[in-house]
Design a protein around this nucleic acid. Sequence first.
DNA 1: GGCTGTGAAAGGCTTCACAGCT
DNA 2: AGCTGTGAAGCCTTTCACAGCC
Lengths: 263, 263
Amino acid sequence: MATGRTHRPATRSRGIPEATVARLPLYLRALTALSERSVPTVSSEELAAAAGVNSAKLRKDFSYLGSYGTRGVGYDVEYLVYQISRELGLTQDWPVVIVGIGNLGAALANYGGFASRGFRVAALIDADPAMAGKPVAGIAVQHTDELEHIIESNGVSIGVIATPAGAAQQVCDRLVAAGVTSILNFAPTVLTVPDGVDVRKVDLSIELQILAFHEQRKAGEETPEAGAPATSGRAAAVAAAAEAAAAADRKGPDGDVPAVMPA
Amino acid sequence: MATGRTHRPATRSRGIPEATVARLPLYLRALTALSERSVPTVSSEELAAAAGVNSAKLRKDFSYLGSYGTRGVGYDVEYLVYQISRELGLTQDWPVVIVGIGNLGAALANYGGFASRGFRVAALIDADPAMAGKPVAGIAVQHTDELEHIIESNGVSIGVIATPAGAAQQVCDRLVAAGVTSILNFAPTVLTVPDGVDVRKVDLSIELQILAFHEQRKAGEETPEAGAPATSGRAAAVAAAAEAAAAADRKGPDGDVPAVMPA
DNA sequence: GGCTGTGAAAGGCTTCACAGCT
DNA sequence: AGCTGTGAAGCCTTTCACAGCC
């Protein structure tokens, strides 16, 4: 999965399991589609199919929120939409900043799914002085120097990092120092944060690598089995690839010119 | 986790747990960085720190691959890089196609992390005739009509979907019919695929929603507890937000003009 | 009759702690 | 002495199956 936490190990908030929290947005999306089509109620079976999970899991998940269904009938769509939104904290407005306005940062700024669900892009920040003032997705890009000021004056608690890997930790430190307590990290680096700060990461290349693993397995289903370590020309075989990968990691989420330079 | 499987339930390939597979790319990245700095060996403790996991987990993970370490010493960096690369299937070349060249598709095409690890962008495909022939990341965009031909003549088995949600299932069906067996889906939809096809999804807005959940929890740590369902004006309160969210979902990963139209 | 809500069972993942090798 | 490899324990998640309510 494109995903994963970095912190907050045992603290299961208000008794809702982390696995359940991760599925609530899925249910919310499916319910929203039903709501749009003015469907008044839905059964666990139907909703589960729409969300791509099985119905027992869905019912168990909902049971952590409370008893919001009616036996023999199903769930009231509008009511559930509200309950899940409230549980996820989407009934309030969350200002977010996006740091690193390269290809990916721009795509994120343009991403409609943010703006809709209570996430308001409060600012776009980039280290390139040439970017400053340029409008991206209708918002003028601001320089990294303004970072602390932007965070504080907008009360931003969620930051998105879309810088090259080399700049990510420094940006992260500055965000945290300025008051950000949740970070969505697109840079291919492990971020170190103090206690109480949540980090989630999205790593595009990791997802592909996981697919490749399964793909390889499918292809090799008839061949007798790869066998023990083929210790032959291993070092040579991998040297070039390793170097290329390392170089790409240094460059960051966008494969081109760094959008944020180390301060 | 920006992430999640959709299929393949019990089939634990060659005995390597799914959770372990998901971490191998992380280890590989950390090892690649060490390899670059010509570090010859590394202990489980050091490597675990670099990858952001704990050392017991890392040792357990590696134990599924074989006994590649040396007691009292640690792991040979180059050797491990090779073993993990091989296990993930990265020693071979994987041609991938990206369908839907909007903001996000373009960002993906430019993403350096793909090209490096054995993933070669074989083609960029978009439904907009005006895009055809335009170069993105040095590759000329091709029209959707060519999809089947491209897949077959390049032997593509991995496809990336970055279209609006409304087009994703149709694109998926065509990819699968043409021979693709692994799909990375950025569109905010549940894809239905036949047995034997793997789907992984990356959903940008879901990650933010999960962060919002924890963020809300932090903020409300002193307040007495939200209490039972605030059944007051719920329907009205949520109607506008729900509509906005639904509209955004229809539009797709990029918040602007659809890049691929339903056929 | 139909569908939710949930104890209980099963399975998977993580952590512990130490035997075993260098 | 140091560090890996791994059984065993503990925890979390999923699935089952049915009691309980409409």
